[in-house]
């Protein structure tokens, strides 16, 4: 049994939180370049130039890419042969607390949804745990903006709605809320599971790299088709009109009940802040 100290987890999360707020990853920046080339609207091209310049300024480390530094979401995959010396949950939360405080990041988390008092340190983060093989701890970190999260949707479709029903729901989600979610977007689409699982896998999909397609060719083709359909909506960068509304559609699937066809669309804005580390 391998053992790692909880303090190492805290440090890794702190570093991810601080880095991601300032530095978009190469896959996202490449998607911007590609999008700028494809965009035909002049206003849309100008938006791409602005977000690329914004990324350059933010990468200098003085000002975050976006003032909404997000609510932190962490997927922790724990190898069965690993033991964390200390409290893993507390270690992750402490990492978020330190990262958002020391990084001069905006604290956007309220302690209660209706009484709405800010916790002051951006905790709690939302953490999803899973147990797998090996003796490592894999942390996937996302700083998820609230504006795009608000445009996300979930539906319990009927099996008879089928593939077309799922696809229509995804396109409809972008049609309704895309303009408000800071396009160009990355869509995380969950299909299957049950009520809570479908939202979780949609989030996982949203945090996946925009240049990674689903390993199943059937779903990889659906990702491409959905991207093309969403881009025909005309919404464009920042919703001001254009042919590039989404940069990528990422699909994750899970087995489901025979009466069910759950689908969830987790909308991510162009501030696609995701990263992972293996400890």
């Amino acid at each position: 049994m391998r053992v790692i100290e909880a303090a190492k987890v805290t440090e890794a999360v702190r570093a991810l939180a601080m880095e991601k707020a300032y530095k978009l990853s190469g896959d996202v920046l490449r998607a911007f370049d590609e999008g700028e080339k494809k965009e035909k609207s002049e206003t849309g091209k100008e938006i791409f130039r602005q977000i690329k310049e914004n990324a350059e300024i933010a990468a200098q480390g003085e000002v975050p890419y976006c003032q909404d530094c997000g609510m932190a979401v962490i997927f922790a995959e724990i190898g069965k042969d690993l033991r964390v010396d200390g409290n893993l949950e507390a270690a992750i939360q402490e990492g978020v607390r330190r990262g958002y405080t020391e990084g001069y990041l905006r604290k956007s988390v309220l302690g209660d949804p209706l009484r709405r008092k800010n916790t002051g340190d951006n905790t709690p983060a939302v953490i999803h745990y899973s147990i797998g093989e090996g003796d490592k701890l894999k942390l996937t970190f996302g700083a998820k903006g609230g504006g795009s999260e608000n445009m996300s949707r979930l539906a319990m479709l009927k099996p008879s709605d089928g593939e077309e029903g799922v696809k229509n729901f995804v396109v409809e989600t972008v049609s309704i809320g895309g303009a408000n979610a800071c396009p160009p977007l990355v869509l995380g689409v969950g299909i299957g599971g049950n009520f809570e699982k479908v939202a979780e896998i949609a989030k996982k999909a949203a945090l996946r790299s925009p240049d990674k397609r689903n390993p199943d060719p059937y779903y990889a083709a659906m990702e491409e088709e959905l991207k093309a359909r969403c881009n025909k909506l005309g919404i464009g960068p920042m919703g001001l009109g254009g042919v590039v509304t989404v940069l990528a559609v990422n699909i994750e699937v899970f087995p489901c009940h025979l009466v069910a066809l759950p689908v969830a669309v987790n909308v991510n804005c162009h501030a696609d802040r995701h990263g992972e580390i293996v400890l």
């Binding site: 977000i51 914004n54 933010a58 976006c66 303009a179 408000n180 800071c182 920042m238 919703g239 804005c269």
Partner: peptide, 30 residues
């Protein structure tokens, strides 16, 4: 700001001569 407005806002903009300016969302550093 950024994003769509409802009809009540649009009607009030006509009545009171108000403009709505869009800034680029997410361009916080710029």
């Amino acid at each position: 700001a950024k994003g769509k407005r409802n009809d009540a806002v649009k009607d009030a903009m006509k009545k009171h001569f108000v403009a709505y300016f869009g800034a680029t969302g997410g361009a916080g550093a710029l």
